[in-house]
Design a protein around this nucleic acid. Structure first.
Lengths: 211, 211
DNA sequence: CTTATTATGTGAATGCGTTCACAAGAACGT
DNA sequence: ACGTTCTTGTGAACGCATTCACATAATAAG
């Protein structure tokens, strides 16, 4: 059990995958699963799966595999999914609105508590029972509602300002949908979801990787 | 100029980043840019930038840097952004609708030509001038409209079926928003955009990487 | 024309994630 | 009980991306 070891980002990403897989297996009533079975479902190697899991201890049984329910619960604890998180969405445009309605988040314990916008026509209205607040009160509201994660869904030029407000309010995790690179302290965790970039990767593949 | 060389996925991802940066610099009228300047804007190393660009030739001038306009155009050709692509969105729910309204795609030359759904109440209506078609005619319509890229924005359980239809219609690139792992031939390029997973990564960071 | 400065391009070194390979352990049938 | 089969856990080998370091070259100033 190599504790104290730094876990690579790729390993954490795959933990999410294992979690989803294990949730499905648990519903099906499977008592155990082998690294080979997990690997086949996701086009990984069995060694990769075992190595990933071994970073957090050894919960497998040789000759049998891993206990589905226990492993899922263990990964939930590692990923912090055995609790709820308070989320705020900034930007009530197309993407922001879609995120608020996206039911997967609630299911996983990510509770959207606040929505912000700068459009007076939107402020005061509500999406799915969550009122749209004025973005000019961003920092105060984030603090008052103990928001853990801020989702930025505003136009590119506005994103950096929102990020800085969020950081100043003590937020330590940001999910950014704006197509810009945010400058924030290293102590804040940032993930970018840039859909144009994803399409560009596909485009590169389609033209065969050259010009 | 190390041609014939396989370009790593990370390099291609960064090309998208350089492209965005260069577009901005071009608007500002900057004639040239150094690897150091590019690196500083994105928290990369200058060596990384130079190595990435060197895979496609050497367009820099020692002592001066890279010509902004030429480099942007070169990267556009490499990524296949000097043309348009026909895109279809499957699923007219929250995410699908948001994508159709997302203006960045059109700007980059990704033209959404078709939207599909299985809900009779939605079929026939239109989003942003694009009519919603019946998903039961998926393959035929994809072929008829020469769709290059299919965006899957349907509930998890329906995603695999949609992917298979798309592949059977000759589609070679898929952007998947459904939280499942799609099984498709290796000859088809697939990118996953799983927003729950992004939040889970943030959650892992917030709990400090242990349970 | 010469010197100082800046910045590219790239082989070599480094670091890190993935895969290999195998010893060790557990279950199951005979 | 014993051998066969299955599967984990992990050190070692491997491969690939990143970083280093420097020769090379262009500009600018005096």
């Amino acid at each position: 059990m190599p504790r104290n070891r730094r876990i690579s980002e790729s390993t954490v990403r795959r933990l999410s995958i294992y979690y989803r897989l294990l949730s499905g297996l648990e519903k099906e009533g499977a008592p155990t699963v082998s690294s080979r079975e997990l690997a086949e479902k996701e086009k990984l190697t069995p060694a990769q799966v075992r190595k990933d899991l071994s970073f957090f201890g050894s919960f497998g049984t040789r000759g049998l595999g891993y206990p589905v329910r226990e492993l899922r619960e263990k990964i939930a604890r590692i990923l912090g999914l055995n609790r709820t998180w308070n989320v705020a969405v900034v930007g009530a445009g197309n993407i922001g609105s879609a995120l608020v309605s996206y039911k997967e988040f609630q299911k996983q314990g990510f509770l959207i508590k606040l929505i912000f916008d700068n459009d007076q026509r939107k402020i005061g209205s509500s999406h799915k029972g969550i009122p749209v607040s004025d973005v000019s009160h961003l920092a105060d509201e984030l603090k008052a509602h103990h928001i853990d994660i801020v989702v930025i869904a505003v136009p590119g030029p506005a994103a950096q300002g929102v990020a800085e407000e969020a950081v100043s309010a003590g937020v330590r995790a940001i999910l950014n949908f704006a197509p810009v690179s945010l400058k924030i302290p290293a102590s804040v965790s940032l993930r970018n979801e840039n859909m144009s970039m994803e399409l560009e990767q596909l485009s590169y593949f389609l033209v065969g990787g050259n010009g």
